[in-house]
Amino acid sequence: MDHKKREYTMTIDTKDCFTIEGKLALPYQYFAGRTGSRFITSLRDNKKIMGLECKHCNKVFVPPRSTCEVCFEDISENWVDLPNTGIVTGFTIVRYEEPHQPVKPPYITALVKLDKADTPFAHIVKGIPLSKMKTGLRVEAVFAKRTTATIMDIDHFRPIKEGPSFKLGYSYDALEVGMSDSFTKTISETDVYLFAGISGDFNPMHMNEEFAKTTPMGTRIAHGALPQCLIAPVLGMKLPGLGTIALEVTTRFKAPTYFGDTITATGEVVEKLPERRWVRMALTFTNQKNELVAEGSALVLPPPSMP
């Protein structure tokens, strides 16, 4: 190929190369338009978030736009009020610093889809440790005290304070015959005297050492209820656990409980009753010498399964 070969090399004397600082500074303005303005003034003046609905596509757009971009229908009159609550559909944590940011990093930028809206929009989430941030978090809007007629008239979104959440115990289906759990406590003189007051049972065999000397036990003993009630934390908090309803508890006492004895109450699943989904449990109460203090059975209704 016959073409003029051009010289591509160049002598570069770097003493002549330097840099100059400059700036790009331009004023500008943005018009929200009629629809956008109504959205902003509603945030600013009424603390209300509004959207527009496309009745054809059955979609609610937030922030609102005057035309449905899918079917091209003019939806500019179909205003809907929206609640201030929603769900996080995605998020990222910004860690680097830059002059144009709305808040100082690190901060969470999230997509929030309000309840009843079909489109999410971006905003800041505050009030949750960064490591705990997750998709699916339910949030609510916090409106700004000083307004600027921009989207920042919503200052940020914060997690909705739900009630404390608990983990329920074993359900009927999760329980298996043979499962067992227990609870141990030392019964003290204080427990006995307080129980006397609670129950009204001031029987001198519990309260009067001189009298108790004349009984076959030879000294004061605890009320029967005191070892017996130790099964309650087993059924109610361990096996089956939270949400259990105790339907029937029977106990036969085998040996006295002396002040200072350490009693272990054990419940074991022995039968599952499918018709009513009740569970029968065998109860045993032993002391520090492994002597059987009492035994019995309980019928319980375990908690429902977790969704």
């Binding site: 004397d13 700036k23 500008y28 303005q29 018009f31 929200a32 956008g36």
Partner: peptide, 26 residues
């Protein structure tokens, strides 16, 4: 009806390299 207008000044810092030719001239 109120029409919202947002006014701002876009301000970005820049650094320009002269290169050897413009640099020599300057």
């Amino acid at each position: 009806e109120e029409l919202i207008v947002l006014k701002q000044v876009l301000s970005l810092d820049q650094t320009f390299s002269t290169g050897p030719v413009m640099g020599r001239f300057l």
